[in-house]
Nucleic acid binder design. Sequence first.
DNA 1: CCTGCGATGTGATGTATGTCACATAATTAA
DNA 2: TTAATTATGTGACATACATCACATCGCAGG
Lengths: 191, 191
Amino acid sequence: MNGQELLKQHISKTATLTDEQFDYFFSHFTLLSFKKGQTIISEGDEVDCEYFVVSGCLKAFFINDDIKMYILQFAMSTWWTSDYNALYSHSRATINVDCITDAEVLCLKSADREKLCAEIHQVEHFFRWRTNRGYVASQKRLLSFMNNDAKKRYEELLTLYPELYNLVPKHLIAAYLGITRETLSRLYNGR
Amino acid sequence: MNGQELLKQHISKTATLTDEQFDYFFSHFTLLSFKKGQTIISEGDEVDCEYFVVSGCLKAFFINDDIKMYILQFAMSTWWTSDYNALYSHSRATINVDCITDAEVLCLKSADREKLCAEIHQVEHFFRWRTNRGYVASQKRLLSFMNNDAKKRYEELLTLYPELYNLVPKHLIAAYLGITRETLSRLYNGR
DNA sequence: CCTGCGATGTGATGTATGTCACATAATTAA
DNA sequence: TTAATTATGTGACATACATCACATCGCAGG
């Protein structure tokens, strides 16, 4: 499915747009192609876009002072990603986004999103619900962090997104779970 | 400040409503008073409201199988709280909300929120931004969990919300930080 | 087809935090 | 005020996970 159809179908689950409204909405997006390993947002960048993933897999991650990486989010087809903190507070990026595989994304400028939200009530409705879902997912992950040990979180992740198992290297899975690659290795090989 | 003024001022930071629109909006809220220790949402309840805190302090928390408590959110004046997972997925509550101190809250039914969002574009705008902020805060807390040890998270919490120090017992602070009360006690008394 | 580097496995050891047990201080209820 | 409950402190010990060091494996580029 191409990006336009994918986005149309994605939005129609939450909001009702006429064909003309959708075409107008879609006209604000730019299709970008990236190769595996390419960077989309770097720490320190001015962030003014968010991204709807058409194909491939991205990661949004944070690098701490000890150069350890923590993955905030994997983003696959129909997922949205950006540095929402920077985007919302108009500050510089503190997280990075890059490509785990070759990827195609639809880029929407923040100013355009706000314009579209103001112009088309249903677009604002869509973004409210999208963020709702993100918020709930984020709270669930937080709870999982507090309540479950690394093994349980690993199993939970693979239950929720089995496609990740073959798609992303294990040291990235570890970085998502908040543990080291060594510990992850020991979890599924006995001890 | 009374609840109506507080809510009006709170909303005006994000959305522009006429006085008539605000009065109509406000007419959907119910003022409720609770005593310290009273429960607002219990696990298993049907959840159909969210709450705007006028005064006092609430906690939203999860109890695991070992009867250990994890606090998802403290909620003080001008904060919103509920079991948003249950609210949006129309499922039963998996978290609890109760009162750390005597509290006054404004209750908004989910059905009314959706109605108001559909009727008044600026109301939908307000709720989109409110959830945005919640989402960003939740991601920050997630990062803090992965990147910082308990001591740093404790200092971070007190920097962000110094009023909590005198307001809530330390075992609740521990439950928010995801550690035991013993560990928290050892953090600020030297070892 | 090499060659080199990124990804993974595994042992030895260190450390933060949990668990359990008990003492004491501070609130709340009667 | 007294009694009961809840909150807090502290020691001894257990455990999950990190760290560091090194070995192996597999794949990508020259």
